[in-house]
Design a protein around this nucleic acid. Structure first.
Lengths: 200, 200
DNA sequence: ACCTGAACACCGTTCAAGT
DNA sequence: ACCTGAACACCGTTCAAGT
């Protein structure tokens, strides 16, 4: 038998991050209270400060965790069998994965970008963001070599793609797009970017 | 002489919205306190509740005001002399205006989209959002008639354009794009969408 | 090392009372 | 009509004390 369960079950730090992420996804950052969190986990309200110096540090950890999960989704989408097809299909698969994550974790994604935005953002977070967007970058470079995508700076093209994916997700989350038609709309948006707005 | 200045100067409601917007832009929604707001304006902490039933109602009003200001910027950009040129130039002008607003009012824009996102969002807000994005829509339709933009559903094309603008702004705000190169990068992104990722 | 529990300064909201 | 000021329940943070 281990020590009596007067203290927490072992990994309060991980439990805090997990529960905080749940609350953020369900009700937004504004609904997150350290004291309530501590109550939920059965520890005193002072306990979290052992693992996070302040609330922002916990939020940063939640954001970091979010980027890890998003990265996993994107890597999975990029490695899909269907993703071995044309660049158009690869792009569509990644876009679906990104938008899915964004819609299912809207408040979390907002927190993730807000955390990254902070000047005092930990270096760990900046690195995680770069890694998160590495998968799409690779897909673009490969497509360029196959001649399916115009040559030129990869960053320029990646920027256009990431902006489109992120912006599309934001439009859905904001309720500017009918959720019913969002699937078809995303396909149309991907095709618009691939083919261009100008007639061919 | 009017009544002695024991009460507020006349339009506490407007003053609350204006000051709240300032605080949000400067330090984010999290830094907004009704009590501090009241202190800044020289009224008691209970006074705001005469004009807004709760904090969220004030935030909705701030968001509404933000959409009005954004709409003004977009309409101005669309009516520019240079904007009488090609669709590419019109699009670029509008995109610059949108990204400018987003960068200068990052936290406010986040609040605006979050407010729109709420299910209980007042009808007034939904209407303001539609009007805000009406100007870009008109530009697209005109360009379609001139044959500069592919035919098809205007909404599909507008979605691709709005997603790109909003997403680009989000990338800058998040610090994923070097601010120095952001001007050239925006031009490149606009051109990418106009010309397509696929070689011609 | 890790957690408790009291203390402090703050917050949003409510409401009887004032003018 | 509009604002005040006390009251209430909550919050984040700090810190001596316990195990």
């Amino acid at each position: 038998m281990a020590a009596p369960d007067r203290y927490h079950h072992g990994d309060l730090r991980a439990a805090l991050i997990a529960r905080a992420a749940e609350v953020v996804v369900a009700d937004g950052v504004g609904a997150l209270s350290l004291r309530e969190l501590a109550r939920d986990l059965g520890v005193s309200h002072g306990a979290p400060s052992r693992h996070f110096p302040d609330k922002q540090a916990l939020l940063d950890a939640v954001a970091l965790d979010g980027f890890h999960r998003l990265r996993l989704d994107l890597v999975t989408a990029a490695a899909r069998p269907a993703a071995s097809g044309s660049f158009r299909d690869q792009f569509a698969d990644i876009a679906v994965a990104y938008v899915d994550f964004a819609v299912r974790n809207a408040s979390l994604l907002a927190l993730m970008f807000a955390a990254k935005h902070r000047e005092e953002a930990p270096e760990e977070l900046r690195a995680a963001v770069d890694r998160t967007f590495a998968a799409p970058l690779l897909v673009i470079e490969q497509a360029q070599r196959r001649g399916e995508v115009v040559h030129g700076e990869v960053e320029d093209i990646a920027t256009a793609i990431m902006a489109t994916m992120h912006g599309f997700a934001a439009l859905i989350v904001a309720g500017l797009l009918h959720p019913d038609a969002s699937g078809a709309m995303l396909t149309a948006t991907v095709n618009r970017l691939v083919d261009g707005l100008r007639p061919r």
